[in-house]
Computed example of a mutant assay.
Amino acid sequence: MNDQIRPPRYEIRAQHTDSTVTVYQAYRPAIGLPAARDGRFPPAWKRDRMTWIKPSFLWMMYRCGWGTKEGQETVLAVEITRDGLAWALENAELSHYVRGVHADQADWKRSLRRSPARVQWDPERDLHLNPLPYRSLQLGLSGEAVRRYADEWLVSVTDVTPLAHEIHGLVRSGDLDGAARLLPAESPLADLGAPLPALAGR
């Protein structure tokens, strides 16, 4: 990929519609299967814990090992409202201190404690799960954001573990073109109407 077509270093890319955005999570089957079956998270899903959502399918594959890592065997595509994602971003803080963005570390820590969401940027991944020279968003939700995510923003939950395994099989067999054709179509989200706290930290 040359510099002319390389995505910006910080950019949210996701599968989306006019009103929704798809993010990914991976859980043990006891959580993931009921969530996909019922279209909502089961009682065993802990609302008092931080939960991380990822708009990038391939970053999710890197994180869960194509659905093979223990406790991450069920990969979910979670469709949420665009308004919900925008709210989370508007109320987010960076997951790490950046000189020049925050007045000092104490100021960043105070803001982090108050924020129900946190932004983290990690290298995007290719089909071999190697890092790329631009970043993919992870968004951590806690407190009010977790409740809104589960009760207000959630539109649908789909088990995409078979898709993950199929794409992984094609990659392992060397059919990268075939694997790429099966990837969810992700494109930039440029009109969320929300500032990205991480952009100032480049």
Rank of each mutant, 00 (worst) to 15 (best):
M61V: 06
R113C: 02
G100V: 03
L112H: 13
I53R: 05
S56M: 08
M50L: 11
A88L: 03
A103C: 11
L76R: 01
W52A: 01
M61A: 11
M50R: 15
S95E: 12
F41E: 02
V101H: 15
K46M: 08
A92S: 15
S111T: 11
T81S: 08
I53H: 06
W45V: 00
L76D: 03
T51M: 08
S95D: 13
D107E: 14
T68F: 13
G100K: 06
C64G: 12
R114P: 01
A88Q: 04
Q72T: 05
N91I: 04
H96R: 14
A44V: 14
P42L: 10
G84F: 01
R113P: 02
E79R: 11
H102S: 06
W52M: 04
M50K: 14
E70Y: 15
R110G: 03
Y62L: 01
V78F: 07
E73M: 00
G71K: 09
T74P: 14
E90I: 03
N91T: 12
K54F: 07
S111D: 14
L94A: 12
S95W: 12
P116R: 06
Q72R: 12
S115T: 09
C64L: 09
M60A: 07
Y62S: 07
A86I: 03
D107A: 13
W45L: 00
Y97E: 05
W59G: 01
W66E: 00
A92T: 09
R82Q: 06
W52L: 01
V98N: 11
I53T: 05
R113M: 07
Y97A: 02
D104Y: 10
Q72V: 02
G100Q: 05
V98L: 06
T68N: 11
H102D: 09
S56L: 07
R40K: 15
E79L: 04
I53Y: 06
V101W: 15
P116M: 04
